[in-house]
């Protein structure tokens, strides 16, 4: 069972995130990490691989520092990693991202039985790359899995909606995106950290993938960020002094805001 997990190196949500001069996400001035939503996909892949004697390959696209996201996944227990790193990719939209990911996956040997992704990135939060990628690879796509089992050449997925939970089955090879409800990602162990240093990481450029640089990057993007402004700081809270009538004042406040 060969599993590929697509992951993204994102700015740490706890840091002061901002944009660069070209209105793309600032990835240089802010500490980054393996997107927390992608950790669930890595964990799920490791669990399936452990149960099925499989191998997990981690794939990312990003600048040099994105290697840290691969490192974290390898420390958790993944077997190998591929880093697509090419300056021309900077500013790519979801369409170009899915193109590069698809080309990279098609170059893998052996080909994966299962492609896993997180439900969205924590920076762009578009959540469309998984289905675009499945389309390019010609694979069945099952999104937002909160439970996943693999057996008899099929993947079975529980997909929780507001009104109902669906059980969806797809034949392998397939692509599945997972939610943050599917598991509890493990921490790396110290042994995992030591072992990760010896695991193979391939670095590929667009030329290695045979992707025309004009199809990717900021100039090829179908959408661009025109402008941005920081969200206004939160308003100061209202302090109600309890002079024996705190309860009724609270009720009035909740009523005004239509909570009652």
């Amino acid at each position: 069972m060969n599993i590929v997990v697509c992951v993204k190196y994102v700015p740490d949500a706890q840091a002061d995130r901002t944009f660069s001069v070209d209105n793309t996400t600032d990835r240089a001035g802010v500490d980054g990490l393996l997107s927390e939503l992608d950790e669930y996909a890595v964990e799920e892949a490791l669990k399936i691989a452990e149960a099925n004697d499989g191998e997990v390959t981690i794939l990312t696209i990003g600048p040099d520092r994105a290697a840290d996201a691969l490192k974290k996944a390898l420390q958790m227990g993944a077997h190998r990693a591929v880093h697509v790193n090419d300056a021309a990719i900077h500013g790519s939209d979801a369409i170009a991202t899915s193109l590069v990911l698809a080309k990279a996956i098609q170059k893998l040997d052996p080909q994966p039985d299962l492609v896993l992704t997180g439900m969205a990135s924590t920076d762009g939060t578009m959540g469309v790359v998984p289905t675009m990628l499945a389309e390019r690879l010609g694979l069945p796509a099952v999104t937002y899995a909160s439970e996943l089992t693999v057996a008899d050449g099929k993947v079975s997925v529980r997909r929780d909606g507001d009104l109902a939970s669906q059980t969806i089955e797809a034949t392998l090879p397939a692509l599945v995106s997972v939610t943050d409800q599917i598991n509890e990602p493990r921490y790396p162990s110290f042994k995992g950290i030591m072992a990760a240093k010896k695991k193979p990481v391939d670095t590929w450029t667009l030329a290695d993938l045979g992707v025309d640089a004009e199809l990717v990057g900021l100039t090829a993007a179908w959408t661009t960020v025109e402008s941005f402004s920081a969200r206004p700081p939160r308003q100061k809270g209202q302090i109600v002094t309890d002079e024996g009538d705190g309860g009724s004042k609270l009720a009035v406040f909740l009523g005004e805001h239509k909570f009652l």
Binding site: R186, S189, F190
Partner: peptide, 20 residues
């Protein structure tokens, strides 16, 4: 258990016996 699984409870002991 978590610290043990992460290998943080056996750091100063030899690798051949499971230490760090």
């Amino acid at each position: 258990r978590l610290l043990g699984q992460a290998g943080l409870l056996s750091l100063p002991y030899p690798e051949e016996f499971g230490g760090g």
